[in-house]
Amino acid sequence: LHIEINVNGLRIELHNVSEELAERIREILEKVDDREEARRLAEELIK
């Protein structure tokens, strides 16, 4: 499954994740104000 999410102008592509996991990642990242911090957090979440 390939999912693309957009959060605060940051486009993140997720591969091989469930829709539920992608939604949780999006919800978490929406709470982060700083774009660079959101990017770093996204990288950690999808490892």
Rank of each mutant, 00 (worst) to 15 (best):
E4S: 14
I25Y: 03
E13D: 10
G9N: 03
R35D: 09
H2K: 11
V32Q: 06
L45F: 09
R11D: 05
I25H: 00
E20Q: 10
H15L: 09
I28D: 01
E19Y: 15
I12R: 00
E23I: 11
D33P: 14
V7Y: 06
L41K: 06
D34T: 04
L41D: 01
A22M: 12
H2Q: 08
E44C: 07
E4D: 07
N8H: 11
D33R: 13
D34A: 03
V17P: 05
D34Y: 02
E44F: 08
L41Q: 12
E4C: 09
H15C: 11
R39I: 15
K47Y: 10
R40D: 04
K31P: 02
E4A: 11
E44H: 08
K47P: 03
L29M: 10
N6W: 10
I28F: 05
I46M: 11
R11Q: 09
E19F: 14
L21W: 08
I5H: 02
N16G: 14
V32W: 08
L45R: 00
L1Q: 12
S18I: 03
R11A: 10
A42Y: 10
N16D: 11
H2W: 12
E30K: 12
H2V: 15
A42D: 00
R26E: 03
L1W: 10
E36C: 02
L10I: 15
L10M: 13
L10Y: 15
K31H: 13
A38I: 09
G9F: 01
H2Y: 05
E19D: 10
A42F: 14
E19N: 12
N16E: 06
K47V: 13
V17I: 13
R35C: 06
L29A: 03
D34P: 02
E37Q: 08
A22P: 01
L10N: 10
R35K: 14
D33L: 15
L29N: 01
I28R: 04
A22G: 04
R40H: 08
E30N: 13
K31C: 07
I5G: 02
E23G: 07
E36H: 08
E20H: 11
K47F: 13
H2A: 11
R24D: 03
N8R: 03
K47E: 12
V7R: 02
I46A: 14
K31W: 07
D33V: 14
I46D: 01
L29F: 14
K31F: 11
E44Y: 08
V32D: 03
V32P: 02
A22E: 03
E19H: 15
I46N: 02
I25N: 00
L14Q: 01
V17K: 02
K31Q: 13
E27I: 08
E37G: 02
V32I: 14
S18V: 04
N16H: 08
V7G: 05
N16L: 08
D33C: 05
A42V: 15
L1F: 11
N16M: 08
I3W: 10
H15P: 05
I25P: 00
R39C: 06
R11M: 13
E23M: 12
E27N: 11
N8I: 03
K31A: 13
I25T: 00
E37H: 06
I3T: 08
E37I: 07
D33G: 13
R39F: 14
L14H: 01
E37S: 04
L1N: 13
E19W: 15
D33S: 14
R11V: 15
R11W: 13
E36M: 07
D34W: 03
G9S: 02
E43L: 15
H15E: 07
R35W: 11
V7A: 07
E19P: 14
L29G: 00
A42R: 00
K31T: 15
R24K: 14
D34S: 08
E19K: 14
H2E: 08
R11G: 05
E19G: 09
L10H: 15
I3G: 05
N6L: 13
L14V: 08
N16I: 05
L41T: 04
L45V: 09
E19V: 14
R24L: 11
R11N: 10
L1S: 13
E23Y: 09
R24Y: 09
V32E: 07
E36T: 07
I25W: 04
R40L: 11
E13H: 07
R40C: 04
L41A: 05
L29W: 06
L45T: 05
H15R: 04
E4I: 15
E30S: 13
R26D: 01
L21E: 08
L10D: 05
L1V: 13
A38Y: 04
H15S: 10
H15D: 08
I28A: 11
E20V: 08
A38K: 02
L21S: 04
I3Q: 06
R35Y: 15
K31G: 14
A38T: 03
I5P: 01
N16Y: 08
E37N: 04
A22K: 04
E23R: 11
A22T: 04
E27L: 14
I3E: 04
E23A: 13
V7N: 05
E13N: 07
E43Q: 10
E20Y: 12
L45C: 04
S18L: 04
G9V: 01
E27Q: 11
L29D: 00
A42G: 02
A22N: 02
I3A: 06
A38D: 00
N16F: 10
V17D: 02
I28S: 03
I46V: 12
A42W: 09
L10V: 15
R11K: 15
E13F: 12
I5W: 01
L1D: 10
I3N: 05
L21P: 00
A42H: 01
E30W: 11
S18D: 08
E27M: 08
N16S: 08
L29C: 01
E23Q: 13
E23W: 10
N6I: 14
L1E: 09
I12P: 01
I12D: 01
L1R: 04
I28G: 01
S18N: 09
E43K: 04
V17L: 11
L14Y: 06
L21G: 02
R35S: 13
H2N: 13
L21H: 04
H15F: 13
L41I: 13
V7D: 03
R24I: 12
H2T: 15
E30H: 09
S18A: 06
D34G: 05
R11L: 14
E19M: 15
G9C: 01
R11T: 14
D34I: 03
E20K: 08
D33M: 15
N16W: 09
L21D: 10
E36L: 07
K31Y: 11
L14M: 11
R24E: 07
G9I: 01
E20C: 03
R24S: 09
L21Y: 06
E43R: 04
A42P: 00
K47S: 14
L45W: 06
L14G: 03
L10W: 13
E30A: 10
R11H: 15
